[in-house]
Simulated assay, not measured.
Amino acid sequence: MLSAFLYFDLSFMVWYLLGPLQVQIAQALALDTQQRALMVAVPILCGAVLRLFLGLLADRIGAKRTGMLAQAVVIVALLVAWMLGVESFGQVLLLGAMLGVAGASFAVALPLASRWYPPEHQGTAMGIAGAGNSGTVLAALFAPMLAVAFGFRNVFGLACIPLVVVLVVFAACAKDAPVAVARKTLGDYARVLVGNRDSWWFMFFYAITFGGFAGFASALPGYFHDQFGFEPKLAGWATAACVLAGSVMRPLGGVIADRIGGTRSLQMVYAAVTVLVAVAALGVGGPAATVALFVLTLLCLGAGNGAVFQLVPQRFGSEIGLMTGLIGMAGGVGGFLLAAGLGVLKQQFGSYAIGLWLFAGVALAAALCMVGVKQRWRMGWVQLGTARV
């Protein structure tokens, strides 16, 4: 569990690295708002797609070996960026694509932890391992500050230091669960999607909870800079407060879902997010009030992440690897659409409000959809009665 958490935590730190650095990079490369948004969204999208392939690889060579290989690829990419520099929009997009390998760690860390625990503790186990998304806090706190002191290029080299340390710990301590794991193919992913509407529901629900978390985590440094004139360091600290709330609540969300049921937790999450984001879109209050609204928003989204993965092992116990990849991919796609969409709408209309209203509307739709599927899931999963639905 500890190895999975550390691997996930540091992977998320570098996956998110371009978000807190976006203001300095955009100023150095003369990027507009839309380009800046695409820059921070590309790692999210690439991480989403690569999760499927990392999941396939983990089934063949084991989650531990896959995690080590992925970490090595990320370290090499950062070292190249540090030594050769990032001098153009195309180069920073290429770096973002390579950092997507770190985002794909989701398909390694969660199954590595999950396979050691029974269904009634899945929410807690997945929540603790998934709390590795707290790595975004480390990036938000330290990356802008280090960039001011040493330049953003040197931040890429400095990030390799903790990555190497965790790679050594992971290699020494991580263990694959002693359970048989069937090797999956892309056809298996297609089979789960075709004729199984629950897989699509889970992907939709996670595209909002994790997509909202990842999308806002990447977009908020630029949002706070544009909206309130925050300097990069202050924007990073404000964002760190938001992502810390979401990260802390992920394991707690799993525990809460174990106790009151994942469906009830999600319904409450989506309702709260609808209200909070809508109020933020209205622009009520000053910078402090807006930061507080986003802290509460990401806190709710973090709880929702834990709740989704309290339900996944109950519904897809024998296909947890397949669904982890698919659902994780959907979450990444949701994050990409949110981060990129906010930037596009800001550039086209001069305001972030439209993008926030759209996200609030999607969260409301999810709350209403949960009402429709909740009873069917509860009635259909009674045979798994050790855990609450």
Rank of each mutant, 00 (worst) to 15 (best):
W200Y: 15
W200T: 15
F205K: 08
Y206L: 08
A207C: 12
I208F: 15
T209F: 08
T209Q: 06
T209V: 14
F210A: 14
G212N: 06
G212T: 04
F213R: 10
A217T: 12
A217D: 04
A217C: 04
S218I: 02
S218W: 03
S218H: 13
S218P: 02
A219H: 08
A219F: 13
A219K: 09
Y223V: 14
Y223D: 01
Y223C: 02
F224V: 00
F224Y: 15
H225K: 08
H225G: 09
D226I: 00
F228D: 06
F228G: 10
G229H: 10
F230P: 01
F230Q: 09
F230Y: 12
E231I: 12
E231H: 08
E231L: 06
E231W: 05
P232S: 03
P232Y: 06
P232I: 13
L234D: 15
W237H: 12
A238C: 06
A238M: 10
T239F: 12
V243L: 04
V243G: 06
L244F: 15
L244S: 10
L244D: 04
A245C: 08
G246K: 04
G246H: 10
V248S: 00
R250A: 01
R250V: 04
R250G: 01
L252G: 01
G253Q: 01
G253L: 00
G254M: 04
V255Y: 15
I256M: 13
I256Y: 11
I256A: 15
A257R: 03
D258H: 05
D258G: 05
D258A: 02
R259T: 00
R259L: 05
R259S: 04
I260Q: 02
G261K: 03
G262F: 07
G262M: 04
T263N: 09
T263Y: 07
R264P: 00
S265H: 07
S265C: 13
L266M: 10
L266P: 01
L266Y: 12
Q267G: 14
M268P: 00
V269F: 10
V269T: 10
V269L: 02
Y270A: 09
A271D: 06
A272L: 05
A272K: 00
T274M: 09
T274C: 09
V275R: 09
L276P: 03
V277D: 00
A278W: 13
V279F: 14
A281F: 06
A281T: 14
L282E: 07
L282K: 09
L282G: 11
G283E: 02
G285C: 07
G285A: 05
G285I: 15
G286K: 08
G286E: 13
P287V: 15
V291W: 14
V291L: 12
V291E: 12
A292P: 03
L293G: 11
L293F: 14
V295K: 06
L296I: 12
L296S: 10
C300F: 15
C300Y: 11
A303M: 15
A303P: 05
G304I: 13
G306Q: 05
G306H: 02
A307L: 02
A307T: 12
V308N: 12
F309M: 03
Q310N: 11
V312D: 02
V312N: 03
P313G: 06
R315D: 07
R315Q: 13
F316W: 10
F316R: 06
G317S: 14
S318E: 06
G321R: 01
L322K: 06
L322A: 11
M323N: 01
G325H: 01
